[in-house]
Amino acid sequence: MKRAFFRAAVGLTALPENQLDLSRFLRWAAHDHILGQVAAAHVDEAGGKLKDVLENARIRSAHDRRMLTFEADRISRALLGSGIEPVLLKGGAYVAAGLRAGRGRRVSDIDILVEDQRLAETEVLLREAGWQGDSSTAGDYDQQYYRRWMHELPPMRHGTRRTLIDVHHRLLPRTARLQPRHDLMMAASVKLESTGLRAFSPMDRFIHSAIHICADGAFETVARSFIELYYLFGDLEADDRRRLIDRAAEVNALKPVASALWAVSHYFGSANAHAALRSMGVMKVGVALRFILRVVVRGGRLAPVARLALYVRSHYMRMPLAMLAKHLFSKAFKRGGQARATRSGG
């Protein structure tokens, strides 16, 4: 059932004909924030209430695209003359490069990657251009935690436009078990005509997406993530597909890439992804992870337990256990106290 939903969501098949399936499909898509993508993949099919729902989603995602384009422009303006050329990551890059993965995508913040040694300068320049530390992470503990251990600065929010920017200096936390070679990926990045910013090469875009989804995220919006992987993989030229596994090995991201290929092959029936996975030979995707993901996607009674398992896994992947224990302790007590005092939540 859910596999049929995934395929309909990207336009591989028509929308469900049966009215009950269609209504379930739309509620699933709304819940997983992919209605805009569904609306982009099915432009001519709608009438009646279906048309209303898809049109509504299109207007929303058109706004996100405008916002992203504008913010990318403001970022390159803020860094003008400094010689810093940040790499736009994720949704920002997909939209700026006009990729299928960016069509109809809901975007709430913008992610950029800069070289570690230019990080401090980038932060200063963005501050001068109006971005400030966001109040939700303004506390001392959060600030130190981000700066000492994480792969990004604490999120910055623009003072008047309220848009959020994450400035990365690596792809995973300093403490993560997996340490991908972002330096190699940055070196292979390409300039985006539209913005003066850069984006990863098509191959590295897929690899980074795999890293982000399978080695960092807690799979909060599984459908959105897998659709992104499907489009990015589908956009690879035959030559890139052949070199993908070697590149994954080179940048130290074999495991997440294997999981990503499994998802694309399993949920979208992609023969190419299946072949790429087979070519990895002994590399197998963890049976446990696959099982848990299937439970999450299917939904139902066990889904919350599976989601908890993924949440625990995401933290396990991020830092050594002793450190994790200390962090969770601080989060529960120190931040709890702060949140109560300032009502800023957390």
């Binding site: 049966n18 009215q19 209504s23 509620r27 709304a30 009646g48 209430k49 729902v53 509504n56």
Partner: peptide, 9 residues
């Protein structure tokens, strides 16, 4: 019924 397409839930 539950097979209705709706704007909101």
């Amino acid at each position: 019924n539950e097979d209705e397409i709706v704007d909101y839930t």
